[in-house]
């Protein structure tokens, strides 16, 4: 189970990374086409009009994909920002209480968010909503990244909650991930490239 979950988070992280690479590819391709048009204008006096249809819309969809798919992975890597001033000052047994509280509140919010983003996605499907640009993209398709990404985030937070109740610390709360615990944080950022 542990291995499956960790693989799930990691796989979602790489899907998100692929979306970012895809944004870069798509936009670069459009810039290349623009350059060809530019050269054509200089040589023949008229542009060809090479465009990737709806590339701005699609880029936006990919960004949403990257942002939502990466949620759980970023959580586990300690990437989401929190103000840990109080949490790191209190004695260890209170520390656990704080961590349980955070995982509970976060998990509840994530579940709520997952449910309503599913509703949004389902409504788009039901009414056949499409994007308004050159290409009519059925909106439920890009919108499905929200329930998927948030669903995995909810799993990750419940996973953290279970870990905490068992008496251990979740991945994001380990000293190596925790922020502002030691004076050497800056130096560490140099050493290990984080």
């Amino acid at each position: 189970m542990r291995r499956f979950l960790d693989r799930l988070y990691r796989a979602c992280g790489w899907i998100a990374a692929a979306f970012i690479a895809a944004i870069c590819l798509l936009v670069s391709a459009q810039v290349l086409l623009n350059s060809i048009d530019r050269v054509s204008t200089l040589l023949t006096g008229s542009a060809i009009g090479l465009t990737i249809p709806s590339y701005a819309d699609i880029t936006g969809f990919f960004l949403a994909g990257a942002s939502f798919f990466a949620l759980a992975f970023t959580l586990n890597e300690g990437g989401h920002i929190r103000v840990s001033l109080v949490v790191h000052q209190v004695p260890p047994r209170f520390r656990r209480a704080f961590e349980i509280w955070a995982a509970l509140a976060g998990g509840a919010a994530a579940l709520y968010f997952t449910w309503y983003s599913s509703v949004l996605c389902y409504q788009s499907y039901l009414y056949g909503d499409v994007s308004s640009g050159m290409v009519a993209v059925p909106l439920w398709l890009p919108q499905s990244v929200m329930p998927l990404g948030l669903g995995v985030l909810s799993i990750a937070l419940l996973d953290a909650l279970v870990t905490l109740l068992k008496g251990a610390l979740p991945a994001y709360a380990h000293p190596a991930q925790a922020i502002d615990t030691d004076e050497g944080a800056l130096a560490r950022s140099v050493l290990d490239g984080e």
């Binding site: 990374a17 990257a66 990466a70 992975f73 990437g79 984080e194």
Partner: peptide, 13 residues
């Protein structure tokens, strides 16, 4: 790439 993915996810969220 994965570093950028994490940071931009944090900001986007």
């Amino acid at each position: 790439l994965i570093g950028a993915t994490k940071t931009s996810c944090m900001i986007a969220f």
